[in-house]
């Protein structure tokens, strides 16, 4: 149930993000989700795409520093407290979240939360025990 995310290092300068989206678009890579963590001087672009290995190869060919990271995608009920109930379960079980971001499903009204967690296998285990719906890579690529 792990999903592979691509992260790319970018200088915090005008037009840099577009250089990434351009090379991916030219090779027909579809970006399913994207978020940016930024500092004064640089940013890290994190994204889910439909063809991870191909995208990595394209980016490396274009001199971007990038890497793959395993993350967890969780379906979050679109009701008040929906996210909170999930975070409480992680918290009770001492799962530390390094970062998180969200996007919205197209077909349903649920949100998808992406979590970067160091103890990923433990988190998957706990999610399954507590009836948290994990989203598979296939689903992200094809259905959402």
């Amino acid at each position: 149930m792990k999903i592979t995310q691509i992260s790319v290092f970018l200088g915090n300068k005008k037009g840099r993000l577009a250089t990434v989206t351009k090379v991916l678009a030219e090779q027909n890579i579809n970006i399913r989700s994207l978020c940016i963590a930024e500092t004064e001087n640089y940013g890290i672009v994190r994204m889910l795409v439909d063809s991870t290995d191909k995208a990595i190869a394209i980016l490396k060919n274009n001199d971007f520093v990038c890497d793959k990271t395993d993350i967890l995608a969780v379906e979050v009920p679109d009701v008040p407290g929906g996210l909170n109930s999930i975070l409480e379960i992680f918290d009770t079980n001492n799962i530390n979240i390094e970062y998180a971001y969200a996007f919205v499903e197209k077909k349903h009204s649920n949100a998808i939360m992406i979590f970067k967690i160091d103890e990923l296998d433990k988190a998957i285990n706990i999610a399954e025990k507590n009836n948290i719906t994990l989203v598979s890579a296939d689903k992200i690529i094809t259905e959402l």
Binding site: F9, I44, V65, C66, D67, T69, K116
Partner: peptide
């Protein structure tokens, strides 16, 4: 210059 060896997807590691 950033390299693949120095890179991390987490800001805290880069700083």
């Amino acid at each position: 210059e950033m390299s693949n060896k120095l890179f991390s997807d987490e800001i805290k590691n880069l700083s």
